[in-house]
């Protein structure tokens, strides 16, 4: 994600990363990787991942790794919801979807 930050910037998309984990993970991650996009945290409040339908899909009380592309009209134009623990969306795939918006 961080690697592709420049490419995301070029497409004009705003990245909002939401952590539903406890804060140790993202804090350590941001400190280590020097992330340039905002990392929001829910303080273990599941309401937002629940609203997006990604909460607790694996019965572990966490949101599954998922990406929602929201267009300028505020509508979900594309999404990728993690089907398992190791689910990964490659930045190239996301960028391709972002470019479809324009």
């Amino acid at each position: 994600m961080q690697r592709a930050k420049a490419e995301f910037d070029a497409t004009g998309v705003q990245i909002l990363a939401i952590s539903t984990d406890n804060l140790n993970g993202p804090l350590a991650m941001a400190a280590r990787d020097g992330l340039e996009f905002p990392i929001l945290f829910t303080a273990l409040d599941p309401s937002i991942p629940q609203a997006y339908g990604v909460f607790n899909l694996f019965g572990d009380g966490l949101a599954s790794a998922s990406v929602f592309l929201i267009d300028k009209q505020g509508e979900i134009a594309w999404k990728s919801i993690g089907k398992n623990y190791t689910h990964q969306v490659f930045p190239e795939e996301i960028i391709e979807q972002v470019k479809k918006l324009n």
Partner: peptide, 13 residues
């Protein structure tokens, strides 16, 4: 961000 720019909402674990 509505009406301004698209947003990528990323839930990550």
């Amino acid at each position: 961000y509505r009406g301004k720019q698209p947003v990528l909402v990323v839930f990550y674990r």
